[in-house]
Simulated assay, not measured.
Amino acid sequence: MNRLVWRATIYSCRLTINRHGVRQFSSGAKKILIDTNTDTGVCKMKLNNPHANSLDRDMLDAAVKAIRDAESSPQVRGIILSSNSDTVFSEGLEGKEMYRRPREHLIDYWTRVQDLYLSWYGCSKPTVAVINGYTAGAGCAWSLMCDYRIMRTGATAAIGLTEAKLTPPASHFFINLMRPAINNKASELAQLQETMFDSSEALKIGLVDELDSPDNLMNKAETRLKSLMGVPAQDYRKTKLLTRQPHLNKLSGMRKQDTEAFVSAVTNRKTEIGLGIYVNACAEIERVYLDSASSCA
């Protein structure tokens, strides 16, 4: 596996546990915590998956349901997507969902990933992503599905589409998300080199729209969202879908072929070896941290 993906694996695994050995997520089964202010119409969604907000099947189901519910609710006028962790937004695809899984499982998993793209990128209401930590691969892609991105400053904040090489060519709709944000050449190089950008670099190239301190991220997100909500809803929807509908239609028309490409990619021997390293490294690092926490208790 590429050295940058390996580094990202170790880093994202470590971020799921703080220095006291306590997970930085709320307990319970809810993968996404939702809070809607019916007076303002602002719906806040916080990712809450203990495994670094990785996109396992339950998280994907929760994400799709949450945005569809928000889309259909007359009480919701705009959505803020953030994380319930202080240091990680999302590490992206869940390796265990892809590693040595039967064909039926892989088809089911990728269908849910496609649903995430179609529902979030196709949402007609304003969406703002608050990138309050490290985010890679499909986590980066998820933020790019939103209309506006605000990222925290600091050493733990990094963003990149590192999974573009993990599942070629099935992730073409993820790759295409980066192109409107940065120019085609820069997008291609970032994906070929699996580059992770710190917050200042991400702002410079246009991968995110604003930066702020961790303490002020949500305030800035609400201000920006309310500005977007000030545009008449019908005008906003028409303009947004005018640019996005061709991409949505493309995936909708080739979901089966796209899924077959994904299955072929992750069952390739070379990719399978890389996924094995990824999954085993995560498991081992988490085991060491939990053992250390238990011994200190």
Rank of each mutant, 00 (worst) to 15 (best):
T127F: 04
L15Y: 02
C13N: 15
M145R: 00
T267I: 08
R237F: 04
Y134W: 11
L106F: 04
I67H: 03
K31F: 05
R14S: 13
G28D: 01
T162I: 14
F174Q: 14
L55H: 09
Q245G: 02
N280K: 15
N37G: 02
I273S: 08
R112F: 04
N18A: 01
H20R: 14
T162D: 09
L225F: 06
Q24H: 04
R179E: 11
G133M: 00
S264I: 00
A155S: 14
N219T: 11
L228P: 00
C13S: 15
A283K: 14
P126K: 02
V88Y: 07
S26L: 15
D291T: 10
E286R: 11
R237W: 03
K65W: 04
D115E: 15
F173Y: 15
R68F: 03
E104I: 07
A170L: 08
P180C: 04
A158L: 13
H20L: 13
N183Q: 06
L166T: 03
A157N: 13
H51T: 10
G276W: 08
W142S: 07
L106I: 07
G276M: 11
C140F: 09
H51W: 12
C296K: 15
N37D: 15
A170K: 06
K30A: 15
R255T: 12
R19K: 14
S292D: 08
K226V: 02
L242T: 12
K165C: 11
E94Q: 14
G41S: 07
H247E: 14
R244N: 07
I10G: 12
M254H: 10
D39K: 15
E163L: 09
L275N: 05
S264N: 06
I182V: 13
E222G: 00
A261V: 01
F25R: 11
L248P: 08
I175Y: 12
V22I: 11
Y134G: 05
E284F: 14
T239G: 08
F174V: 11
K220A: 02
R255G: 06
S264P: 01
I182M: 06
R103K: 14
T38P: 08
A281M: 14
R269A: 13
T259E: 07
D258L: 11
R19H: 12
N53K: 02
K185L: 12
A129R: 03
P50F: 05
T243P: 03
Y134I: 05
A202T: 05
R287M: 13
T156D: 14
T87N: 12
R68M: 13
A66L: 10
N18E: 06
L15M: 12
D58A: 12
A181R: 15
P180I: 02
R19C: 09
A63Y: 03
A141W: 08
K185Y: 10
C146Q: 02
F89L: 00
L93P: 00
N216T: 13
Q24W: 00
G274A: 10
I277Y: 15
L116V: 09
L116E: 06
R237H: 07
L47M: 04
R100N: 14
A190K: 07
K165R: 14
N84W: 05
N2M: 09
E210P: 01
E94T: 05
A283M: 08
V113W: 03
S119N: 08
A62H: 03
F89P: 00
N216M: 13
L166S: 04
D35E: 12
R269K: 11
A281N: 12
L225H: 03
I285K: 07
M229C: 02
